[in-house]
Every structure is written in structure tokens, then in C-alpha cells.
Design a protein around this nucleic acid. Structure first.
Length: 432
RNA sequence: GUGGGCGUAGUGUAGCGGUUAACACGUCAGGUUGUGGCCCUGAAGAUCGAGGGUUCGACUCCCUCCGUCCACCCCA
């Protein structure tokens, strides 16, 4: 608890995104937007908070997210609201609410939005994080599953990331899923004595979870455990096999693409069925999964809409950025300003301010050096500002009705031009 | 919720049972006549995370709490 004497810090698990980081953030976000648009996806923003019931029903009452990770609160009217912990349920709610089933199907949507989970922070995990997500609603075909995965591929490729493995699995439909879960439970129960405590504890609660356990003993048992792929209905099996064919077809366009069928891959949220996938870099450390997604055919029905299939993914921007920095895969820099205005003396300051405003009408970017400081101080300021030119106006210039223009990024002659917008604009921004 | 590492100026670090708590970067001001980058000089900036204890004396040793990082659970 910060008392009155202490300075405030950001709450645990949330961070400022400082100016130095914004360049990379913007690059990542605009890559996401470009990629999604290239596939014909349209942007959607849903509110930061929703009725708590949306997540309880959509994500699943028994999931960890709902059980212990939601930022829920009552508003002054007594409604229970929750800061969005994930993006799919809200998008589906919006799809239903706005009758998007009347649009040509499937409806393809994407978002970039903050998510909130009350979780213990660690590397790559925050209480507020941002996700780039895509959702395709209204098409049961595996071509859309493949499309969703391809968006992910194109996105990470555009960001220059390599060494990313795509793991994929099918967990079947709700009916066969419970059969599989029951058999899994039975299988692991037989070896209960060999299971480490953590895994014995979740045997009842979440038998699927034992498959991706980090305990070596459990991993050994998982190898021979019942596989969800052996439980697929004929429909689900066809869907799965078509998807694999489609993914193989992507290898021409994405020579480095390789997927790995991984029967230990399960997803934590209740609404998934059939296809599930994850993108993972070869980083050591553990909270590194860059993408998670899959098909969620039951969800719209669960939320009260007509049965409508859907498939999508969410990708953590913070993790993408960590990985970009680790691989040094993307170098970005802000473009320099056109000029810094250096002005000494009250007359000069007034002229300079007016002139700067006029120059901005030309689309020129211009930064005012701090008023009232020495020319040296202003020049030092200009030097740090990442600008191409200093426009220098002092008493001498006012008298002679000129502006001194000095290049800052390279050694060159200082010029003297008429104290007049067009002339200065042309000097400071030659393409004009 | 559980376990481990770490907490000294804005940042990164040094330090030791007794010092005016050091260094670098950064910030600010200067380096003669109005002009940046390199260089030089100077200044500001730290109740050494908080509270308690041991001691003649603690930034330094012990305990508690808090914060932070990492890991587990789980997830993006």
C-alpha cells in the first residue's frame, strides 16, 4: 500500500509503454493491421469491459481465467462487469448483437486490444497485455482454419521472426471430447502413484492438462496416453485431414513453414473444438507462446446466437516484441523532424513561433527550442532532437530579414535565406 | 496461491561494521564577442525499499513487511 508519503508506481503487472518503445509498438501494430487487411479482415473494437456473465458463459465457469483471473467489479448501478480477459467472446457477442449473420458469411474480423488477467506477473506475462486477434465467423470449412493459421505465418514473417514452430492438434467435438477426457482420466488414474503431486491434484479437475505437463514423469506417461485424434467423429476426421492437406499446400508460399502435430496440445478455454494450434519460438523460458487459437463452433450458440461456427487466434503483442528484440529481427527508427526552431530575443521568438505555424501548413515538422535560453543551450537541444535542420533566428536575422539554416545531420554550409515561409520551407524540406 | 533471486541518485553499477556514500551515462549551467555533435569545468540529484533488532556505532549483520524479477499453476 502506498501511503501519502510514497510516490505512486504503476500497479503490479502493468507497464508504461514509453516513447522509446513506441516506434517498435507502432511497427508491430501496423504490420498486424496490414496483414489482416491483406486477407480481407475488418477491424473491430469492443469495449474494455463487458458483463461478467459473458465470460462466465463464453469462456467457461470452470476455467482458470474465470475462476481466479478476472478483474470483476460492480458498477454504481449494481451490474457486475469484468475487464476483458480475452477477445473472442466479446467479438462473438458483437456478432450476435449486431446481426452480423445477415452479412455475407464468413464475417472476418480483427482487433488489437488490451486484455486483463489477474495473474502473477513474470517474463512475457502481464496483468494488462495486448492482443492482435483475428476471428472468422460463419464458415465451417477447414479452408478458414488454414487461412487463420496463414495470417499468423504472414504476420511473423513480415516481422522477420524465424525459428517459430506451429503446433497443431484436433481435440474433436464436444461429444467425443468428453469420451477422450474420461479415458484420459482412467488412464492416468491407473498410474496415479507415479504422478507428481501437481498432476495428481489436477487429475479430476483437468485431465487434458496432464498431457502438456512439465513434469518429466507425466510426460513419459503422456506419450502413450489416449490421443484425441483417435476419438474424432468421421466429420471431424475429414475436417482434420483436409486441414493438413491445406497446410501442406502453404509450403510453397512459405518455404520455412513447418507444422508439428502435437497430441499434447490442449487449450484452456472451454469453447474450443476441433482445430487448436499454437505458435512457439525456440526460446528458453516458459511464457513464450506467441499465438494461440483454434475453432470454436459451440461458442456463438453458448452465447445465445444461432449455431454458427467460428475460428480465430489471439497473439500477444508484448511477447511478439520480446521475441523481435531477442532475434533482433526488426530495426525501426522514427524519421527525423524537418527542423528545430532556434530563437533568441523576444522579437525573434515571436517571429519564430508565427513562422513555425506557417511552416506546419506546408506539412513540415518543426520543434521549438526552449524559449529564453542561450543560443548554445538551444543548439544543444536541437542536436538531441533528431532533426535535419536548425532554423536560427536572432536579432541579427530579424534586422537583415533572413533566417540562418544550419544542417544538423551532416557537415554542411550554414545558409542564409529570406525570412519568408516559402523560401525556408523549400530549404528545410527540399522535396517541396 | 506456492517457491527462489534481487532492492544504493532518472538509468546502469561500486562500496564497506566507523567515508563528506563513489563512478559512468543522463539533466542543468558555463568554457569570453549569438551556433549543436567531441572535449573541459561546475552544479543539482540518494532519508542506501520500509519498520524493527544486534552493536559504542549499520548502507554494510539478523528478522519482518513491501516492492521487483524469475519459476510453478495457467495463459498471449
Amino acid at each position: 500500500m502506498a501511503d501519502q508519503q510514497q510516490n505512486f508506481r504503476a500497479p503490479r503487472g502493468v507497464d508504461d509503454i514509453l516513447p522509446d518503445d513506441q516506434t517498435l509498438w507502432n511497427a508491430v501494430k501496423s504490420t498486424a493491421i496490414q496483414t489482416a487487411r491483406q486477407f480481407g479482415y475488418q477491424q473491430i473494437d469492443t469495449p474494455v469491459f463487458e458483463h461478467t456473465g459473458l465470460f462466465r458463459r463464453g469462456v467457461g465457469d470452470e476455467t482458470d481465467i474465470v475462476q481466479k483471473e478476472m478483474y470483476s467489479f460492480k458498477d454504481l448501478g449494481g451490474d457486475s462487469l469484468t475487464l476483458r480477459p480475452e477477445g473472442t467472446a466479446p467479438v462473438c457477442r458483437s456478432y450476435i448483437e449486431h446481426g452480423m449473420h445477415n452479412l455475407p458469411q464468413p464475417v472476418r474480423l480483427f482487433y488489437i486490444a488490451p486484455m486483463f488477467r489477474y495473474d502473477r506477473p513474470q517474463a512475457g506475462r502481464y496483468r494488462q497485455h495486448h492482443q492482435f486477434g483475428c476471428e472468422a465467423i460463419g464458415d465451417p470449412s477447414p479452408t478458414i482454419d488454414a487461412e487463420i493459421i496463414e495470417i499468423g505465418l504472414r504476420y511473423i514473417t513480415a516481422l522477420g521472426l524465424s525459428d517459430v514452430t506451429v503446433r497443431i492438434n484436433s481435440i474433436g467435438d464436444p461429444a467425443t471430447r468428453t469420451g477422450h477426457a474420461d479415458d484420459l482420466r482412467a488412464y492416468f488414474t491407473r498410474y496415479a502413484n507415479d504422478l507428481p503431486k501437481v498432476d495428481r491434484d489436477r487429475l479430476d479437475r483437468a485431465p487434458l492438462r496432464l498431457l502438456d505437463s512439465k513434469e518429466p514423469a507425466t510426460q513419459k506417461l503422456s506419450a502413450n496416453a489416449p490421443k484425441s485424434l483417435d476419438y474424432l467423429s468421421d466429420d471431424a476426421k475429414n475436417h482434420w485431414e483436409s486441414l493438413l492437406t491445406l497446410l501442406d499446400g502453404l509450403k510453397t508460399a512459405y518455404p520455412n513453414f513447418n507444422y508439428r502435430i502435437d497430441h499434447t496440445l490442449v487449450r484452456g478455454l472451454d469453447y474450443y473444438n476441433r482445430t487448436v494450434f499454437e505458435f512457439e519460438p525456440s526460446t528458453e523460458g516458459s511464457q513464450t507462446s506467441l499465438f494461440g487459437g483454434g475453432r470454436y463452433d459451440p461458442l456463438i450458440g453458448i452465447l445465445g446466437g444461432n449455431d454458427t461456427p467460428g475460428v480465430g487466434f489471439g497473439s500477444g503483442i508484448e511477447r511478439i516484441i520480446l521475441e523481435i528484440q531477442r532475434q533482433e529481427s526488426l530495426k525501426v527508427a522514427n524519421p527525423p523532424l524537418n527542423a528545430v526552431m532556434v530563437h533568441v530575443g523576444d522579437n525573434a521568438t515571436n517571429r519564430a513561433a508565427a513562422l513555425a505555424a506557417e511552416l506546419r501548413n506546408y506539412g513540415i515538422s518543426i520543434l521549438m527550442a526552449p524559449a529564453g535560453k542561450s543560443m548554445r543551450a538551444q543548439m544543444r537541444y536541437a542536436n538531441r532532437a533528431n532533426a535535419n535542420y536548425a532554423i536560427i533566428i536572432g536579432n541579427r536575422e530579424i534586422e537583415q530579414n533572413v533566417a540562418a539554416i544550419k544542417p544538423l545531420q551532416f557537415d554542411g554550409e550554414q545558409l542564409s535565406v529570406d525570412l519568408e515561409v516559402a523560401a525556408i520551407a523549400k530549404t528545410v524540406c527540399p522535396i517541396l
